[in-house]
Design a protein around this nucleic acid. Structure first.
Length: 288
DNA sequence: CATGCGTGGAA
DNA sequence: TTTCCAAGCAT
């Protein structure tokens, strides 16, 4: 039992947010939907969309019965709309191969589209109380500071980092599941990327980074994502046009949304290839 | 393993 | 205003 466990668990008990997918009555499916939406998207923006999704599609089969285009439309402005396609694909697989029940087994989860190591561990842990190493960006940052004494983790998890996180997972499954969500919550609320609120931290006494005097980040420069003029911006504009229209849109609407011809056509091609858009007619496009 | 993939709020 | 970045995944 690490000296970190008791203070982190006590802090979580007193400070956890009341999020709907954490309530006792939350279904495994609702947990899964939340995990997809929370991949790179803040909680505040996920909340209203999650509510709509759960009301409209309370089980995987309900979503699987709809077109992928409806999933993309309901996804709204959460960003990375391919996640909506993958969630639809995962729902279809669950309805057809798992009797409409979200799997509890890590490997079964990992086989679903849009489910990687983090999401598989998170669903198994949060929805079913299984014992897993749940390693997201929050957890990685907390361990980087508290244990390794550096301000930010590396770009991708190293073997040593995974082993360290594994060693810290409590032995019994229920405590392990609470530990996972508790460390995540600490990283989300206190030990954040923008500001480490060490005065509020339950493990400040044990923190290697704080003890070392909060040394400045010394690793390779972390490059931000380019945006202006990128294909991502272009694709976002085109998708916004489709989402905003009841039916098919004429190509002239897409030209208005993005004038540069070569880039627009490349992005239309990529959206068609991704399955986010379909040709509805000679000069019209629509959601799938 | 580095890169591409949306969006908008906060500092 | 600009910059940063928020529970990753697939390739």
């Amino acid at each position: 039992m690490s000296t970190l466990h008791a203070p982190v668990l006590a802090w979580y008990d007193a400070n956890q947010r009341d999020l709907p997918w954490r309530r006792p009555e939350a279904s495994a499916w609702s947990v899964m939907v939340s995990e997809f939406m929370l991949q790179q998207t803040p909680v505040a923006r996920v909340l209203p969309v999650w509510e709509q999704w759960m009301e409209r599609w309370p089980t995987p089969a309900d979503l699987a019965a709809e077109s992928t285009g409806e999933a993309v439309r309901m996804w709204g402005r959460l960003g990375y709309p391919r996640r909506a396609l993958r969630l639809h694909g995962a729902a279809t697989a669950i309805a057809e191969q798992h009797d409409n029940v979200v799997p509890a087994d890590y490997d079964d989860l990992l086989a679903l589209p849009g489910v990687g190591d983090y999401t598989a561990a998170a669903i198994a842990s949060f929805a079913y109380g299984r014992r897993h190493v749940v390693l997201d960006t929050n957890v990685r940052r907390v361990f980087a500071r508290a244990v390794s004494g550096v301000e930010f983790p590396t770009t991708s998890p190293t073997r040593a980092e995974r082993d360290l996180a594994s060693d810290l997972v409590p032995d019994d499954a229920p405590t392990a599941a609470t530990w996972a969500v508790a460390v995540m919550e600490l990283g989300a609320l206190v030990c954040t990327a923008k500001e480490a609120r060490c005065g509020e931290c339950p493990i400040a006494q044990e923190c290697a980074w704080l003890t070392a005097g909060r040394p400045a980040y010394d690793g390779p420069p972390r490059k931000g994502q380019a945006w202006d003029g990128t294909d991502r911006q272009c694709r976002g504009r085109l998708m916004a046009v489709l989402r905003g229209s009841e039916g098919p849109v004429h190509v002239t609407s897409l030209v208005t949304a993005w004038e540069r011809t070569d880039q627009r056509e490349r992005c239309i091609d990529s959206l068609l290839a991704d399955g986010l858009m379909v040709r509805a007619g000679d000069e019209t496009y629509a959601l799938p």
